[in-house]
Design a protein around this nucleic acid. Structure first.
Length: 882
RNA sequence: GGGAGCUUAGCUCAGUUGGGAGAGCAUCUGCCCUACAAGCAGAGGGUCAUAGGUUCGAACCCUAUAGCUCCCACCA
């Protein structure tokens, strides 16, 4: 092994080997219980960012864990065509060449898009592989490949025929730049300083006027009413009367509707059903006409009369001038309001009435709500259930048509002869009704329409493939909380509706990755992190574990170079620990655990390992990867390296071959199990070291059995591995050692200055102290150790602990006054402990109501501290008396 | 406006069913001791946001308040 950890030297080779061996591919013929994850498909718009790396790491950790536990683990990868996002990118690129979509035409445009997909889709796979993820590449899907497209068509036609998909007029968000409808979720609101214009609308009978307030005066050209609140006394008499729309000379009624807020503006609001979603609803309630005044490019149309042809903002300006001239404009107020922008191009969106395709949500939502409420589908953490239910309960019909080219073309065919509209899985040439010529709908489907089918379309549904039969429904879905509404909810109702089964059981939600300052990573801030650059620098494992550590329960995660460096150091620590073990293996006879007598330290580390396995398993089962990682970190660094390796040196550096064989066998065993424990999170380094082990229990670590806390399995039996008594014993030995070390530090006696140690065991701890004496001597800086019954003659430094007192002959190196001061400080601490414990025991309520075990423990502590108090007092007296 | 979450050491966060406040980083002290200076041994540092309540006992449970974050809806 190299002296320092150099991930570059082995990560690639290890990954190639995994691919060649076919370890990632799941078999439909296996007898093993399946465990399935489908990957949330990254958009093909570009390269992966750090958020994907997080998403992938979590999934990979889960799938590797399950695979090692003996499941037939399938992780199905793929990519998403990302209709609007990709189309925008391609249009941008065309613009660089001086071309437009129209110049190319639909067919050539799509060819370009597929070229784009091949290029960027491939790049994404390369990046994912650098991360080391173990998905079944051969089963990889793309939302527009033939099997996914087939599922899309099947679903569309089915829902069309059932009347769940319908075409209708609705207010949709129109992006005048992208020239397409975008869903509500794709609108981003930005608060901006605007104006509230007050405009006079006179009554038709000349009996006065109503003043309305608006932020979008140009839409008044499409007004078909003015609404007031039914209980508003100011307008009580006005309801039912007619108003003359200024500049248009059209008459519109005054209506009463609860929607109006009395306190806003003037309490009277103009109603423009064609250009405002709320007004549209009001219009429906009152049977108002709908007048659309706008073209797709946000210029005004012929309904705008004199303003036709003008851009929306020019029209606003001119209209305001005209209103002012003719005295209709009462006043202009400053007003802060939220304006919707297209999430892709940033243009101000325009609510417009238009003909679009919709999915009727009413019947779809109730089974989807029930599946979560009756715990068939579980959100982890649970609180996201509320997000989901809230979204589901408030969702409106889903607008699924987009005026784009890149995507699944809507499989609807219009007969030019008889006007029949039909949906078909196969392309139609002629009308199925009259045989007349048909043409296909020009629009494509919302990207999420195909994403919604992802858990089963990727497995070949509607065909009952072997894959589908074995692996569907899937087990876990891992994704960010930001797409619960967009995606998770739609997969749930789609799965239930089309396959009759829930698409997955557990929804594991994680947060988003932020920078060190807690800001979202974004291009404009320039604080994004390229996972590949990080991997080049520190290796994939360090990236993986630093992403996953510190995340818990759907919380956001901060990513910083300090954190990354910390985990890179951890990798180095593992590397060197393994090097230590392997270097000491030479010429040693490796034995099976259980075939020789274990020392106190051996039993202790095996007990700690066992406890660690238990905790890690429990956490992994709860998808708490971050907390599991923390447990592993702690065990490897604080217990295995800092203590056991140090303890093992007393045996390893002795000349007793038996002891050396035994110790190296324990070291190897613990190392191997620890590597397996950590492998799901840090696959490369664990695999590289595992390959070098003389005690491998599988051809490759990724197919080795995951450690179990049930006990240590040997060839003949299972050993109990909790070693509870030894854990306690060793911990008190460690406490003693630490106390001596702390004293040395305080008294400026470096560890290199070895001293004699006189140890006086307390209570029944003589045997324990005796068996641990070599450890104490070595780790507490002794050059000799003697077990005594009383403090030796002469000046000594006294160190107290719960199992023993340690006396170190004081030579000229240690100052007497300083030692007295130190002991007095110790005494203060002990006194305060005595006060605390006796106070507690003097509390009647505590003694009566607290559990007996707790009271006993408190009494024992009190006794121990009292004993320590005596020791300290005596030592101080001795020193003063000298 | 509706909903969710957060507030613990200088920073980033853990803290399982209520039972003596933890880790990493940073700071300070001392160490190159044959795995590792990307390291080792120590130390300092906290009114667990605030105010009440329940309890023998509260970081944890309940109520209110303040500050921050996110999601949803979007008021003309």
């Amino acid at each position: 092994m190299d002296k320092t950890y150099e991930p570059k030297n082995f990560e690639h080779e290890i990954y190639e080997n995994w691919l060649n061996k076919g370890y990632f591919s799941a078999s439909v013929n296996s007898d093993k219980k399946p465990f399935t994850i489908v990957m949330p498909p990254p958009n093909i718009t570009g390269q992966l960012h750090i958020g994907h790396a997080l998403d992938c790491t979590i999934q990979d950790a889960i799938i590797r864990y399950k695979r090692m536990q003996g499941y037939e683990a399938l992780w199905l990868p793929g990519t998403d065509h990302a209709s609007i996002a990709t189309e925008v990118k391609i249009v941008e690129k065309l613009a660089e060449e001086g071309l437009t979509k129209k110049d190319l035409g639909r067919e050539k445009f799509l060819r370009r898009a597929f070229e784009w997909k091949d290029k960027y889709g491939g790049r994404i796979v390369e990046q994912q592989q650098r991360l080391g993820i173990s998905c079944d590449w051969e089963k990889s899907s793309f939302t527009m490949d033939s099997k996914c497209s087939k599922a899309v068509r099947e679903v569309f036609v089915k829902m069309f025929n059932e009347g769940i998909i319908y075409r209708g007029d609705r207010i949709i968000n129109w992006c005048p730049e992208c020239k397409t409808a975008i869903s509500d979720a794709e609108v981003e609101y930005e608060s901006s300083q605007s104006h509230l214009w007050h405009i006079r609308y006179p009554f038709a009978d000349g009996s006065g006027e109503i003043i309305i307030a608006t932020t979008r005066p140009e839409t008044m050209l499409g007004d078909t009413a003015v609404a007031v609140h039914p209980t508003d006394p100011r307008y009580k008499k006005a309801v039912g009367k007619m108003l003359v729309l200024p500049l248009c000379n059209r008459e519109i009624p005054v209506i009463a509707d609860e929607y109006v807020e009395k306190d806003f503006g003037t309490g009277a609001v103009k109603i423009t059903p064609a250009h405002d979603p709320n007004d549209f609803e009001v219009g429906k309630r009152h049977n108002l006409p709908v007048i659309n005044i706008m073209n797709g490019d946000a210029t005004l149309n012929e309904n705008a009369g004199a303003y036709a042809g003008l851009d929306r903002y020019e029209a606003r300006k001119k209209l305001l001038e005209d209103l002012e001239k003719s005295g209709y404009l009462v006043k202009t107020e400053d007003h802060l309001n939220n304006i919707g922008h297209c999430y892709r191009c940033g243009n101000v969106i325009e609510p417009i009435v238009s003909k679009q395709w919709f999915v009727k949500m009413k019947e779809l939502v109730s089974p989807a709500i029930a599946a979560v409420k009756n715990k068939e589908i579980r959100f982890i953490p649970k609180r996201f259930e509320k997000s989901y239910l809230h979204w589901m309960e408030n969702t409106q019909d889903w607008c699924i048509s987009r005026q784009l080219w890149w995507g699944h073309r809507i499989p609807v065919f219009y007969c030019e002869k008889c006007g029949n509209v039909s949906a078909s899985v196969e392309d139609l040439e002629v009308c199925p009704k009259c045989g007349g010529k048909v043409h296909m709908d020009e629009d494509v489907l919302d990207t999420w329409f195909s994403s919604a089918l992802w858990p089963f379309s990727t497995m070949g549904w509607p065909t009952e493939t072997e894959l589908y039969k074995k692996f569907y429904p899937t087990d876990a879905l891992v994704t960010g909380y930001d797409i619960i509404g967009f995606w998770v909810s739609r997969m749930i109702f789609s799965g239930l509706k089309h396959t009759g089964k829930k698409p997955f059981g557990d929804v594991v939600i994680h947060g988003i990755v932020r920078d060190g300052l807690g800001r979202k990573m974004s291009k404009s801030l320039g604080n994004g992190v390229d996972p590949i650059e990080v991997i080049d620098k520190t290796g994939a494992d360090a990236l993986r574990i630093s992403l996953v550590s510190g995340i818990s329960a759907g919380g956001d995660i901060k990513f910083s170079s300090e954190k990354l460096e910390g985990y890179r150091n951890f990798m180095n620590k593992i590397w060197n620990a393994a090097r230590f073990v392997l270097l000491n293996c030479e010429n040693r006879n490796v034995k099976e655990i259980g075939s020789f007598r274990l020392t106190l330290a051996d039993k202790w580390i095996l007990g700690e390992l066992n406890a660690c396995i238990k905790r890690v398993t429990r956490l992994m089962d709860k998808y708490e990867i971050g907390l599991a990682a923390a447990q592993i970190y702690d065990f490897i660094w604080s217990e295995f390296c800092d203590w056991y390796i140090e303890l093992s040196k007393t045996a390893l550096y002795s000349d007793n071959d038996d002891k050396r064989d035994n110790t190296i066998s324990v070291l190897l065993y613990v190392l191997r199990e620890t590597l397996k424990l950590a492998h799901p999170i840090i696959p490369f380094i664990t695999a590289e070291i595992y390959n070098a082990l003389p005690n491998k229990d599988a051809d490759d670590i990724m197919i080795a059995p995951y450690p179990k806390s049930a006990g240590i399995k040997t060839s003949t039996r299972i050993l109990r591995a909790s070693f509870r008594a030894e854990l306690e014993q060793m911990r008190s030995v460690m406490e003693l050692i630490k106390n001596v070390r702390a004293m040395r530090n305080e008294m400026n006696v470096s560890m290199t200055k070895r001293t004699a140690l006189f140890v006086k065991p307390l209570g029944g701890n003589k045997a324990l102290v005796k068996s641990a004496s070599r450890y104490i001597e070595k780790l507490a800086g002794g050059n000799s150790l003697q077990i005594v019954d009383a403090e030796p003659e002469g000046k000594n430094v006294t160190v107290i602990s719960s199992i023993a007192e340690v006396y170190i002959p004081m030579n000229e190196l240690i100052d007497k006054d300083k030692e007295i001061a130190r002991l007095n400080h110790e005494l203060e601490i002990v006194e305060s402990e005595i006060a605390r414990a006796s106070g507690k025991l003097a509390n009647e309520g505590f003694v009566q109501k607290a559990p007996a075990a707790l009271i006993d423990a408190e009494k024992a502590k009190l006794a121990k501290y009292k004993e320590q108090r005596e020791t300290l007092k005596k030592s101080i007296e001795n020193l003063i008396g000298e």
